[in-house]
Design a protein around this nucleic acid. Structure first.
Length: 817
DNA sequence: GTTCGAGTCGTACC
DNA sequence: ACGGGTACGACTCGAAC
């Protein structure tokens, strides 16, 4: 039988001691299929140079007799083959060691610690990645698959009967189809509401499900209420059973949640255990599995469980404006839609109408999750295709893993054997090396400037890596010379696979970006974005201690050459008669002076012609005005803090408190308005009047407390803090009140007024109250620590000393402005 | 008792 | 453990006076 098939998920099982891969996906006519494919795992033994043919044959014989006895299998070496390979760009002879079970690869490799063998490699590549690499059964690509249909077959212990799918096929041949049509996955979103925040502590009150034409809330609480989407059950156990049934009957390709790795699925598991209910969600009726690790991941056999929070936080967050990655904020930004409001303090004494609201709230969470999944599907799809890893991993891995996986899946093109993952000691060693010198930042002169041009280097660090061939495999004794603090290093002129792959990534990014401009489809946007993210992460990858291709020298050289490049460019711009006012890493700001924009563009062309390799400088924008301020500590110009007004009247604010989430909203808003006024008028008059008005309001307590709440993230467990700052004290307070505290939470508090005799004696942390705690705010604190600091150094540019003004008024006992 | 600088922490920039 | 370094600024805390 031959079917059209698209792989969505991968898994594997052991049968008679051997590994078999299960590729799970859809057929061309939308049926669910599992393809069973045999697979022979292997790893490499790299020989020392100059080993004789005879000796090599002897070693291969020695390898052939190695075996490992595990509990219920004996793993043997099936085959050895001698190959000419490359390792870190150098020619090597390597023995391919094919074994009968992947799980014992490491143990077999361990038995080969012989002198003649220089290195053993690739036993640390996961079986499924290995399968995808070798057989090229790429995720989310269409294939024509032929094979034998298993139906009530005895094969593999009767596996087909235990799988809840339309087709089980024992694969004979896969052929990637020339025509790759669209694939629309069936997505089901879910969300739970529970009595307690702590996993499994209280019961689950309701579960919502949201798919195409499928909206449900399952509950066992307050059942008289009739809302058409609410379905009532006897108890929690029955609700849980029904949840599993609904998921199964919907037959989703993707089950989507938001923070469901960390909350919803672990909670469901805990309650199912408590109620002795089996959550047999998998196509093989297995329950969700939880991987151990720093962060647990929850997987379901045959259904890709996607925790959108994970995907967004690890890949997309840097391009979002949202200050937190809460479902509410992310949905607002990406969908323009919010969560419903519900007051959880009502949970103790719910009235009829409250349940009504609660059910609607629960359904909306799933609706938002579904819409987010739908919106991000194209991005997940393209990431999976570009990196060639399964969707499950794509939505959980961080950028470093993505870069590494992309490399691993492309090494075959260079005939390269993969470097190993660093072990604990190696990681400790790398981390112990400390920092190397990074980017150059030009200290600006505080002031208000007019007619500013910003230029920046496109994907600067990636371009530097490509242009100068910086990588582990090209680190050499001679070649390009780069001076670092630790000494001089060299990189060979012969192109290495890392820079070469990166060059290809940059080229593709350019190509798809161009195509997107001509034809703005979501697909092209997602594809160009995937390449952009990969390109931008390549530099960080080489400096990352956990990387297989970690190369501190390459990372340090990248930063050094970027510094050199930007400094040279600054000099060239100065030579053209411009005043350079600012520069940070890959951008340069200068004043137009008496030159026109057209002249600047001509100079830009000239600068580009002189740049080496693929280095490229582009126009970022022209700005009508810009303001740079002084540091509060020393009075010199502050780096990474400026505001600009472009010719279209749009304001861009960098680094100021306005864009910092740990300042109260009043200070942020006041500062933002002051910056806007000053940039638009070029004067401080209006701004000063406005600030005076705000201060008066504050002194009269006419400002709402909500505007004075300070938010700060708890980044680790309370016990790990050495310094007890105000937000840690606030978190302790919450803990005492029995409120849920966990790392990653935003802690909200305000600084409250204290008795006169204690004034000045108490630390800030001794004066804080939780945001919803009753009390009056401390006017002096907010004046002196939030409002005046936020606008002081902006007004200072115009010769106004707000702090002095405020102190004088205070001394004159006028009390207010 | 006050002053000051080092250290911790959170957050932003690129 | 799950890119990098640079930078600002608040707050705490202990040494120095």
């Amino acid at each position: 039988m031959e079917i059209e098939f698209i792989p969505v998920d991968y898994d594997y099982f052991d049968f008679q001691g051997r590994n078999y891969v299960e590729v799970i996906g859809r057929t061309g006519d939308g049926k669910r299929a599992v393809i069973i494919d045999s697979f022979e795992p292997y790893f490499w033994a790299i020989l020392k140079p100059g080993i004789s043919e005879k000796k090599t044959e002897e070693i291969m014989r020695r390898i052939m007799v190695i075996k490992v006895e595990a509990v219920n299998r004996i793993t043997r070496v099936l085959k050895t083959e001698l190959h000419d390979k490359k390792f870190l760009g150098k020619d090597v002879q390597a023995i391919k060691v094919v074994i009968s079970n992947y799980k014992d690869g490491h143990a077999i490799a361990d038995q080969m610690g012989w002198d003649e063998i220089e290195k053993r490699r690739e036993y640390d590549i996961s079986l499924l990645s290995r399968y995808i690499m070798d057989k090229k059964i790429l995720p989310l690509n269409w294939y024509k698959v032929s094979g034998e249909v298993l139906s009530n077959s005895e094969e593999f212990g009767g596996i087909d009967a235990s799988l809840d799918t339309d087709i089980v096929l024992k694969a004979e041949k896969f052929e990637r189809m020339k025509e790759q049509r669209d694939f629309e996955p069936r997505i089901l979103a879910f969300d739970i509401e529970a009595e307690e925040f702590e996993i499994g502590k209280g019961s689950i009150l309701m579960i919502s499900l949201y798919g195409k034409n499928f909206h449900k809330v399952l509950t066992w609480k307050n059942c008289p209420i009739k809302q058409d989407f609410v379905e009532c059950f006897e108890d929690e156990a029955e609700m849980l059973e029904k949840f599993a049934e609904y998921v199964k009957s919907y037959q989703p390709d993707i089950l989507a949640g938001y923070f469901s790795d960390g909350f919803d699925l672990p909670y469901l598991k805990a309650r199912a255990e408590k109620n002795k209910v089996r959550l047999n969600l998998g196509l093989d009726n297995s329950q969700p599995k939880f991987s151990r690790g720093v962060v647990t991941s929850a997987s379901i056999f045959g259904i890709v469980h996607v925790d959108l929070f994970r995907f967004i936080s690890s890949v997309f967050s840097q391009y979002l404006q949202s200050e937190t990655l809460s479902l509410n904020e992310v949905a607002s930004e990406l969908l323009g839609e919010k969560k419903h409001e519900f007051d959880f303090s009502k949970l103790g004494q719910m009235k009829e109408g409250d349940w009504h609201d609660f059910f609607a709230y629960n359904l909306q969470d799933s609706a938002l999750t579904w819409k987010l999944a739908d919106k991000l599907w194209q991005d997940m799809l393209e990431f999976s295709k570009v990196i060639q890893e399964p969707l499950f991993d794509i939505t959980r891995d961080r950028m470093a893993s993505h870069v590494e996986n992309h490399i691993l899946h492309n090494l075959y093109r260079y005939n390269e054997i993969a470097e190993k993952r660093p072990l604990h000691d190696e990681i400790a060693l790398r981390r112990g090396l400390g920092k190397y010198e990074g980017a150059f930042v030009l200290q600006p002169q505080p002031g208000l400037y007019e007619n500013i041009c910003f230029l920046d280097f496109t994907s600067m660090y990636a371009s530097v890596i490509v242009t100068y061939n910086l990588s582990l495999s090209t680190l050499a004794d001679k070649g390009h010379e780069v001076d670092l603090q630790e000494g001089t290093v060299h990189f060979s002129k012969e192109k290495g696979f890392f820079p070469e792959m990166l060059e290809e990534i940059i080229k593709k990014r350019k190509q798809y970006k161009k195509e997107y401009k001509e034809n703005s489809t979501n697909l092209l946007k997602a594809r160009s974005n995937a390449y952009k993210l990969l390109a931008n992460a390549a530099y960080g990858y080489q400096g990352f201690f956990g990387a297989r291709y970690y190369c501190r020298e390459a990372a340090a050289a990248t930063a050094a050459l970027a510094r050199k490049s930007i400094l040279e460019t600054i000099e060239k711009i100065k030579k053209q008669g411009f005043e350079v006012i600012y520069s940070d890493t890959d951008s340069i700001a200068f004043l137009l002076g008496d030159k026109s924009e057209k002249q600047v563009l001509e100079i830009l062309k000239k600068l580009n012609a002189e740049l080496p390799g693929i280095m490229e400088l582009e126009l970022e924008d022209f700005y009508k005005r810009g303001i740079f301020v002084s540091k509060r500590t020393t009075g010199e110009g502050a780096k990474k803090k400026y505001a600009l007004l472009n010719e279209k009247g749009k304001i861009k604010i960098r680094g100021f408190e306005t864009v910092r989430r740990d300042w109260c909203s009043l200070a942020r808003e006041v500062q933002s308005k002051v910056l806007g006024s000053v940039l638009k008028t070029g004067k401080s008059d209006d701004a000063l009047e406005y600030v005076k008005g705000i201060i008066k309001k504050l002194q009269k307590r006419e400002i709402e407390k909500e505007e004075l709440v300070i938010k700060s993230q708890l980044t680790k467990p309370i016990s790990e803090y050495i310094a007890i700052s105000p937000h840690v004290t606030a978190a302790k307070k919450m803990l005492e009140l029995g409120l849920p505290i966990r790392p990653g939470m935003m802690i909200e508090y305000y600084v409250a007024e204290t008795k006169a005799k204690e004034k000045g004696k108490l630390l800030v942390r001794e004066r804080i109250k939780l945001s919803n705690e009753k009390g009056e705010y401390d006017i002096e604190y907010y004046l002196g620590h939030q409002i005046i600091p936020a606008v002081g150094n902006i007004l200072e540019v115009f010769g106004i000393n707000l702090k002095e003004m405020a102190e004088k008024k205070k001394q004159m006992k006028l009390g207010e402005f």
